[in-house]
């Protein structure tokens, strides 16, 4: 080890990977993964979120799953929680929609209205 910077680099790099095990107040992406969600194709959506978040090296996001959200006909469904904001529910999700949600909503805080339950779910 040559310098403190070098230590700091390792620290910052690994911090993200252990971040899950600490108390978090970040962004949560929750994918409905009950039987209905899985049957409708929730797993590719979840994987796409992981891929996109990794690619953009975004910190403070946890991707997690939940059971049936209740509107099985609109599965796959994804809920995005930003700190201090109302949750946003996306419906009829496909992997293609993921990158827009990540860039607009998770990075810039602007929900993608056209994919939400309020618009697409009607």
């Amino acid at each position: 080890m040559k310098s403190l910077q070098e230590l700091e680099e390792i620290r910052n790099k690994t911090r993200e990977s252990v971040y899950l095990r600490k108390d978090r107040a970040g962004i949560r992406v929750v994918v409905g993964m009950a039987t209905c969600g899985i049957a409708a194709g929730a797993r590719p959506v979840l994987l796409a979120f992981l891929e996109e978040i990794k690619k953009r090296n975004i910190k403070n996001v946890t991707v997690t799953q939940t059971g049936c959200i209740g509107v099985c006909r609109l599965e796959p469904m994804v809920e995005v929680y930003l700190p201090n904001q109302e949750k946003v529910t996306y419906v009829n999700m496909t992997p293609d929609k993921v990158s827009k949600i990540v860039s607009d909503h998770i990075v810039n805080g602007q929900p993608v209205m056209k994919y939400t339950i309020g618009v697409d779910g009607r």
Binding site: K13, S17, L20, R21, I53, T62, V63, T64
Partner: peptide, 10 residues
């Protein structure tokens, strides 16, 4: 580095 959505600590 891989991004994992969940850690299982044993």
């Amino acid at each position: 580095m891989e991004l994992y959505r969940s850690h299982v600590l044993v």
